[in-house]
């Protein structure tokens, strides 16, 4: 089994500027040495709190952001420093779906134009051939033919997301980076979109990188889950392992905080203190909030991400033996 996408030691630093001359004072490490592999046809969830670096990873993969370091391999080829003329090819293979459906659609274009535009850009397809493809795509995502000449603002959030998905599918991508695709939607509509995404995956043999902070949604959608904390992966494993036997104290706290819609779920709730703040002193980034029995090296040494079982890696000093 070979990976469709392999991210190795990815770093993305943003400059922190200040002072009179607006000089670069420091680096903000939005993504700090992230590695993962995504198998063809599978869904990997990227989970983490706001600001943990999820979107930045997605944008680096699409090359909307230039990585600071590390490598990204797609279908065996290194695409980290790919040239502009090869980017178009890449961009039809990898597509991104965004959180706010309204903001990602051009309000001055009709639904037909929005979905048809990538066909024109990538395949120079126009006229009846393009129209037929657009109508077929609309059908695939559950839009009606009469929606063709309407504008995005005339649609509900769920339908706008369908338009965005149809547009992404137009260029026959193999990998979709889904950045919180349902977090702006109501649950009944979210369920429709999640089911649509699963159908499309089966039908078109798609591979998903699924970004979300909703663990319930991730549990439903993903084969594997990677948890991010302040730009680092703290744990990665198969979905059922993450939910049934989480090892990292942060993962344990997150799982215990899922508000299950079931008053009979009795769980030991781990309430973390504080919020996402940078640890000073170069120890474990999670140390200021960690509820586990900490070790002395927690405050001094950053824990490396170690494989503790096949396909299960954890970055915590409490879990070092294989």
């Amino acid at each position: 089994m070979s990976a469709l996408l392999e991210v190795a030691n990815l770093k993305k630093y943003f400059p922190v500027r200040g002072g009179l001359l607006n000089r670069r004072l420091d680096d903000f490490r939005a993504v700090d040495d992230v590695s993962f592999a995504l198998q063809h046809g599978k869904t990997l969830g990227l989970v983490g709190e706001s600001g943990s670096g999820k979107t930045t990873i997605g944008k680096c993969i699409l090359r909307l952001l230039e990585p600071t370091a590390g490598s990204i391999r797609y279908a065996g080829a290194d695409i980290t420093h790919i040239k502009a003329r090869d980017l178009r090819r890449l961009r039809s293979d990898i597509q991104m779906i965004y959180q706010a459906p309204a903001a990602s659609l051009n309000g001055r274009m009709t639904v037909g134009q929005i979905i048809g535009e990538p066909l024109w850009i990538h395949e120079s397809l126009k006229g009846n051939a393009a129209r037929d493809r657009v109508l077929e795509l609309m059908h695939v995502v559950g839009l009606k033919e009469e929606h063709y000449y309407r504008y995005p603002h005339e649609f509900s959030g769920g339908q706008q997301q369908r338009i965005g998905i149809a547009r992404a599918l137009a260029v026959q991508p193999r990998l979709l980076v889904l950045d919180e695709p349902t977090s702006a939607l109501d649950v009944s509509v979210q369920a429709q979109i999640l089911n649509l995404l699963q159908d499309l995956q089966d039908r078109f043999d798609l591979t998903y990188l699924f970004i979300s902070h909703d663990l319930g949604v991730v549990r439903y959608m993903c084969d594997e889950v990677a948890l991010l904390y302040l730009g680092k992966i703290v744990e990665v494993a198969a979905t059922d392992v993450i939910f049934e036997q989480p090892k990292h104290p942060y993962t344990q706290a997150l799982i215990s905080a899922i508000p299950e819609p079931d008053p009979d779920v009795q769980r030991e709730e781990i309430i973390l203190t504080g919020d996402l703040t940078l640890a000073t002193g170069g120890g474990c980034p999670f140390a200021p909030r960690c509820h586990a029995q900490k070790l002395s090296q927690c405050e001094t040494l950053p824990p490396p991400l170690l494989t503790i079982e096949p396909r299960h890696a954890v970055a915590c000093h409490l879990h070092v033996d294989a």
């Binding site: 706001s50 902070h213 309430i271």
Partner: peptide
């Protein structure tokens, strides 16, 4: 965020 939500609840 979910951990903060848990604190507020």
């Amino acid at each position: 965020d979910v951990t903060i939500q848990a604190q507020i609840l």
